[in-house]
Design a binder for these strands. Sequence first.
DNA 1: TAAGTCAATGAGATGA
DNA 2: TCATCTCATTGACTTA
Length: 276
Amino acid sequence: MGFDDICNTGLVLGLGFSSTADHKSKKITTPLVGKGPSLGLEPSLTLSLISGDRTYEQQPIKISKDHQSADLYRQDSAASSYSNASVKRERDVGSEETTTEVERVSSRVISDEDDDGSNARKKLRLTKAQSALLEESFKIHSTLNPALTINFLIMQKQKQDLARELNLTPRQVEVWFQNRRARTKLKQTEVDCEFLKKCCETLTEENRRLHKELQELKAPKIAHPLYMQLPAATLTMCPSCERIGGGVGETPSKNAFTIAQKPHFYSPFNNPSAAC
DNA sequence: TAAGTCAATGAGATGA
DNA sequence: TCATCTCATTGACTTA
């Protein structure tokens, strides 16, 4: 299955635009050395392809360093070509098989800009329009690699379409999704952390309160002087009604608890939940 | 200028 | 084997 087959599935993404890309109808004028297997298509660089086969309006890509007109392309060719290395390791179906127009343009610009010898990595900054479109797509699908084959084709098309629409490489779209997922996860982790902190504080406070309560129960001289005369083992308290049993002449019931043994609801009869 | 942001990279894991 | 993932990290760029 070639790129044409993938793109002509008849499936339309709900991204606010639909692609009718028909690569068969594209005029190929400039061969690209070293890219793309033989699929009957000759990988090439041509500017007419970008604007000529779309149902949505799009500014034509200008391969010049001063084109700043279209918002989506404000970063223009230079920005899209920042990922010089990423283009090298591009593994996307479309790009591998036919090389997208974007990559062709990027490759062209890369060679143009590499003429000065600077091979330093530059920072790509996505425009607001690009980010908005990516966010919109992310809301629909946060991943580009679903398990199902049919979705796989859809996502491939989504990536290709997004890349073309944004004048980015498919690899850049892929990286954006990866980083976006990472940020989402980080944000969720921070939220979870805050929640756990609050839980910890609540439990600490509860523990402090229970300790205080226990100390009061353990010091019955003032509150319950009568109970001090009884052996500790016979002092029991119901966890539900907090009544103390096991007094003189009273055998501990099966619902009674020995406060001298455990601070919290210990039942010598293994029945702590029984009601009084 | 330090700190923060974020695109990009590389290693290793995973599933088809 | 390949495409994509997560994760950790880098480094260009922005901001306070």
